[in-house]
Design a protein around this nucleic acid. Structure first.
Lengths: 332, 332
DNA sequence: GATGTAAGCCAAAGCGCTTTGGATTTCTTT
DNA sequence: AAAGAAATCCAAAGCGCTTTGGCTTACATC
């Protein structure tokens, strides 16, 4: 030991001002030399700070974790790493989410949490707000009677723009293959599309709107259903690249051509392993990196933990509209 | 309070034998009634048990987390949930993995860890073995001078079988589009294929073996390269469904037919969002659920934590060979 | 030279549990 | 009925930190 009290060591290491710079240096030095790291368990018990950010992960035999999650995680992890934050996933049955949130907050297991896939009037958001732990929602809820901190992309504008472009190309029968419509993002996308249609006095009949979980198979089925309808669309907007794989397969099966018969636009979350430009016909997309969102959420959570950010700050990212070969003028 | 010492309460709750059954019941009762849960931070400091299993997650701008990870996580989470285990992900730069492992072990942040994507002579395995924390390797290393606990699928047999079938169908020029060949799974697959070829006096020339990271784009490029070679293969085995998407696209671009010109077999990790039977031509696959593996790893980790399992037990799962329309006799 | 102030350090009290080493009571044995 | 064994329970000592409240020393002030 270097004959200093525990107190001083602690203060030196934690940057408190009541230690002389020289002492601090000595302590830091010795710490580095001996590879000393304060025991987090002890520190946690004493301070209540965990150095971790939490995520309550819906789990169950019937629950499929979204492949988007891993990309979000990449971004989150990348930032977290550089700030010595660990991430704790608390797997939870769908009907016990509230209990889990209460538990991790009461036990101070994490310093902050993030919420994904929010629904309108999401109870988790209300709960977290009530519990008073730093949090950020990735996406948005709706119809809550208070503001809350979130990071979302402008889904409505994205799909509005995409639709507008298709209309300009002469399309009047435009269909939407959306994700799970209990989630806000899907609602926003639908809204954006409908508004664009309405602006040109067009409508979205129910048979031209399909909401399903985002699998290749569902994309295929939805597309067949749309195209085999008597008033088939000439353009389809699809909420995910994975579903679009199925859409393309269906279109081909029906002997139709992209973009000759059908124009196609998809939303691209930017996966490294599946790129819209590599579709048999390069895909026009609304694009926003979900990975970048993960990093930003981590950054903001860190800021909240250290008190640099507070209040119900909402952040909405614009979405790129990237035009590629999959769209063309409506067939005559 | 119910006028019992802290000691007794602790013992009652933790199932120690030196409390009368009646007292235990009383305590349990009161605990439930007041929603009392021992503070994990305190318990952790006292016992050294964290109630968490850890994963050191390679992270960085250039690091793409494998989409398989999320499926594995589904399984792991599903089991962990039912046993009140949380999962902590420690994001780490590629060159600091060792430091991170040492840290989480020294600090007792987790009770057990799992290792994924092992390479031959994997240093992480050696390290964990040395550190003496419960762990399980998902996959296998090779050339280590000690045994270790793992869960792996029989990649070698799977690819051996697949190859044998293709040979029986008359194929002699069989190519392999493999994943990253620094990882053991890829080595095993290559080995299985080569052994099957050798058994029929066939070879795998270098131009017919491609190792790349498993993206759609790489699958496309690899396939084109294979098929544009003068001695093009008549059958291709592909290490992942995602790469196979690219392979199918390349085959179509070249105006070739499946299985008329090219037979195709892929390994299927069983994603809910992309199924081999839904490819334009239903894909023959070697199949093994990575999700089930995740659940099993969690189960075994839990067993190790509680001392029910120990020693270097290796578990190798057989792989299904599922024949669908994508293979046929070699073209004459 | 006495007094006030700030800087620098420390002893000890938690944080909320588990566990050790007894102490006390109850039940068997002889 | 005395003694030994077994069953219950408890006080207090950690676990390894942070933080409170106080004590010393050094320096500036009058």
């Amino acid at each position: 030991m270097l004959s200093l009290s525990q107190t001083t060591v602690s203060r030196a290491l934690n940057g408190y001002p009541e230690v002389s710079e020289e002492t601090r240096r000595r302590v830091m030095d010795a710490a580095k030399r001996h590879g000393y790291r304060p025991n987090p368990s002890a520190r946690r018990l004493a301070t209540g700070k965990a150095g971790m950010i939490g995520y309550v992960m819906p789990t169950g035999a019937a629950v499929d974790i979204d492949p988007h999650f891993v990309e979000f995680l990449s971004g989150l992890g990348d930032y977290a790493r550089s700030h010595d934050l660990d991430l704790v996933l608390s797997p939870t049955a769908a009907d016990e989410e509230e209990t889990t949130y209460r538990r991790i907050v009461a036990n101070k297991q994490v310093d902050a949490v993030y919420v994904s896939s929010p629904r309108p009037a999401d109870r988790r958001v209300a709960l977290l707000n009530h519990l008073g732990i730093p949090y950020i929602v990735h996406g948005r809820s709706e119809g809550l009677d208070f503001d809350y901190p979130f990071l979302d992309i402008d889904n409505e504008a994205a799909f509005h723009e995409a639709t507008r472009l298709l209309i300009q190309l002469g399309h009047t029968r435009i269909a939407l293959i959306n994700g799970d419509d209990t989630q806000t993002f899907a609602i926003h996308r639908e809204r954006g599309l409908k508004k664009a249609l309405a602006a040109s006095d067009l409508k979205l009949p129910v048979h031209r709107l399909i909401s399903v979980s985002m699998t290749e198979e569902n994309g295929y089925r939805a597309t067949r259903r749309l195209l085999e309808h008597e008033a088939a669309p000439t353009a389809i907007i699809c909420s995910s690249l994975i579903m679009t794989l199925g859409a393309v397969r269906a279109i081909r099966d029906l002997g139709l051509a992209i973009p000759g018969d059908i124009s196609l636009v998809a939303h691209d979350d930017v996966f490294p392993w599946l790129k819209p430009e590599n579709f048999s016909v390069p895909l026009s997309t609304t694009r926003s990196s979900i990975r970048a969102a993960g990093a930003r959420v981590a950054e903001r959570l860190a800021a909240r933990i250290s008190g640099l950010e507070s209040g119900p700050r909402g952040e909405i990212w614009p979405v790129d509209l990237v035009v590629r070969g999959s769209i063309a003028g409506a067939p005559v």
